Amino acid sequence: MCSKIAFLGGGSFGTALSIMLAKKGVLAKIWDRNKDVVDDINIKKENIRYLHGAVIPVGVEAFTDIKEVVQDSEYIVLAVPSHVVRNLCKDIREIVSENQIIISIAKGIEAGSGKRLSQVISEELPNNSVVILSGPSHAEEVAQDIPTTVVVASEKMEYAKKVQDLFMTNKFRVYTNEDIIGVEIGGAVKNIIALAAGVSDGIGYGDNTKAALMTRGMSEIVRIGTKLGGKKETFAGLTGIGDLIVTCTSMHSRNRRAGILIGKGSTAEEATREIGMVVEGIKACKAFYELKEKLGISMPITDVLYKVIFEGKEPKYGVYELMTRDKKGEEY
């Protein structure tokens, strides 16, 4: 295979995917604005800042010139945090061609508008096909060839199948799903629940509490996901319960680690600085809080977490409020 793929953003997951693809013969170019990251990849053969310990193989090169990375690539992966996606698309609008497939690996929605990332990309790059890649896939494990499964979704499934073929290996299994709304919403909201699970850990609560948060959190994912047009069965799959499990239980998870720090008394800003990378759950919490208020959807965990992060509510008192809400049936 001699496909060419561009990764815009030198973060952990994009780097891990480039390593995996290079091993199967794909030529991968990484763009990052940080020259130190680029030099580490090219000279030290390691992304020291974002994926320490993973060896960069032959077939992966990094650049600070975005045009050099984008040109001649068949696929362009937007490997940046969700809040950067629109501006990045604007930056490359004049240098992409219509036949290049855009792949988004971020998990979130746009603050303010509440738009899914595929919608944001399509607004800025209307002539390009967009594919979402999502699922339970920690970068650290993908880079180590630990068996992983993900989902690709698109409004044009022939392009999702092309991406499936491109990424599929004997250690990285890729499924397709026509429900792009469900895939995107599941991947975004689970970050909120993972952050809450981390807060629970930081407070010192146990497995019972985490099981409750994950299960009731799943109800919130389904509630808003179906309201927005997603299919209920999608949330029982890899980008729903699958991603929720891995993000709530692993110390690879930035959201869980940040939540632990918040549960121990750190502010969201202090936790983000300690993690050293974007914590998508914090941004998602604000975006989905605003969206659920607008739509009139009950999301009590999201509601309490928002008040902990943005209004200074004591985490333990937030849990007390959740536990003492009005009685109701489990289906609600």
Score class of each variant (00 low, 15 high):
84 V>K: 00
146 I>Y: 00
72 D>K: 04
314 E>N: 15
92 I>H: 12
154 S>E: 07
18 S>V: 02
122 S>E: 13
33 R>Y: 13
307 K>T: 11
100 Q>W: 01
277 M>W: 10
249 T>D: 05
105 I>D: 03
261 L>F: 02
87 N>K: 02
272 T>C: 07
267 T>S: 15
86 R>Q: 05
162 K>L: 13
208 N>W: 06
44 K>H: 11
108 G>L: 02
196 A>S: 15
49 R>I: 10
290 E>Q: 11
326 D>G: 00
315 P>I: 01
48 I>K: 14
211 A>Y: 09
264 K>V: 08
95 I>Y: 05
160 A>N: 07
153 A>T: 06
227 K>A: 13
46 E>L: 05
98 E>P: 07
191 N>T: 13
88 L>W: 09
154 S>A: 12
122 S>R: 12
203 I>Y: 07
23 K>Y: 00
69 V>H: 04
36 D>C: 08
33 R>F: 04
328 K>S: 14
131 V>C: 14
80 V>M: 03
201 D>P: 14
7 F>A: 08
300 P>I: 04
189 V>G: 10
311 E>A: 03
219 S>N: 15
46 E>F: 03
81 P>D: 11
6 A>D: 10
278 V>M: 08
260 I>L: 10
124 E>D: 06
314 E>T: 08
215 T>L: 13
157 M>W: 02
49 R>E: 14
192 I>L: 12
219 S>A: 15
224 I>M: 01
82 S>E: 10
108 G>E: 09
125 L>Q: 04
5 I>E: 11
259 G>W: 07
172 F>W: 02
197 A>S: 14
128 N>R: 04
38 V>Y: 01
59 G>A: 04
180 I>K: 10
223 R>A: 13
95 I>F: 08
77 V>D: 09
183 V>D: 12
242 G>N: 05
136 P>N: 13
129 S>V: 14
195 L>M: 14
258 A>S: 12
79 A>C: 07
302 T>C: 14
261 L>R: 07
138 H>I: 09
6 A>F: 04
126 P>C: 03
163 V>N: 06
197 A>K: 00
230 G>L: 03
22 A>H: 08
